[in-house]
């Protein structure tokens, strides 16, 4: 058996959902995420054009950086002119803005929410803490590199970045989406085991399903 076959078999393997109690396991799906190929060139370009102009943020402020999202909504910076709108549920949103430091308790919820979003989905990591830990680099409770746990499309450096920097980041994300570079969901499905290994390494009491579809 060569390497490709092994990978294929691994992909068909069901998730164990070992963190859940026995009787709850049947309530949750045990299917692994799969990669979804883009459509043909012109249709995908058209959809990317629409996706870039209708970015819905999930309303989950994960750290102090979420504070910068509020001025964005109000009249001074007004993100709605770029087609960016807050959305209260992960099912309907397409952009996840990680606001700064993510503690272990938060990263558990981040992973859950991220997996519940319907692809294509994009992640903007805001602040230095998501890049290398920032001022919390030696903390016992905050992660240092976000891209080990979920795929990240855009980093916005700073502590805190101003709303203007956020708008610049969103514009950068738009450009990337239009060129079709933002395939974070497929990246997550391809490297699923690696991401899960990293997540489980820090989340010690894993009491949720392995993939939250």
């Amino acid at each position: 058996m060569d390497k490709k076959d092994i990978k294929e078999i691994e992909k068909q393997m069901k998730l164990a959902n070992e963190g859940l109690p026995e009787k709850e396991r049947i309530l949750f799906s045990d299917v692994r995420p799969t990669t979804v190929a883009p459509l043909n060139k012109y249709l995908e370009n058209f959809l990317n054009w629409a996706r870039a102009r209708s970015l819905w943020i999930i309303g989950y402020g994960t750290g102090c950086g979420a504070m910068e999202l509020r001025p964005l909504m109000t009249s001074r910076f007004d993100m709605s002119r770029f087609g960016i709108a807050p959305r209260p549920t992960p099912r309907q949103s397409s952009v996840f803005v990680i606001g700064g430091y993510a503690s272990i308790k938060t990263i558990k919820r981040i992973v859950r929410s991220y997996e519940q979003m319907q692809g294509p989905k994009f992640v903007i990591a805001l602040g230095s803490c998501t890049i290398n830990g920032g001022m919390y680099y030696d903390s016992y409770n905050t992660i240092n590199r976000l891209d080990y746990y979920i795929p990240v499309d855009i980093y916005i450096a700073g502590c805190m970045p101003r709303p203007e920097a956020l708008i610049a980041g969103f514009n950068k994300l738009k450009e990337k989406i239009q060129t079709g570079e933002c395939e974070g969901m497929n990246k997550y499905a391809e490297n699923f085991d690696w991401y899960k290994k990293n997540q489980k390494q820090i989340i010690k009491d894993w009491n949720m399903p392995d993939y939250n579809w």
Partner: peptide
């Protein structure tokens, strides 16, 4: 509504873009 709030507001075609985007999602539950 945006102008009442003192904002510039989304474009008039925003609902169409939203519909195209939500239809263009690759997976659904």
């Amino acid at each position: 509504y945006a102008r009442v709030h003192g904002r510039y507001g989304p474009s008039v075609w925003q609902p169409f873009l939203d519909i195209i985007k939500t239809h263009g999602k690759r997976v659904s539950i």
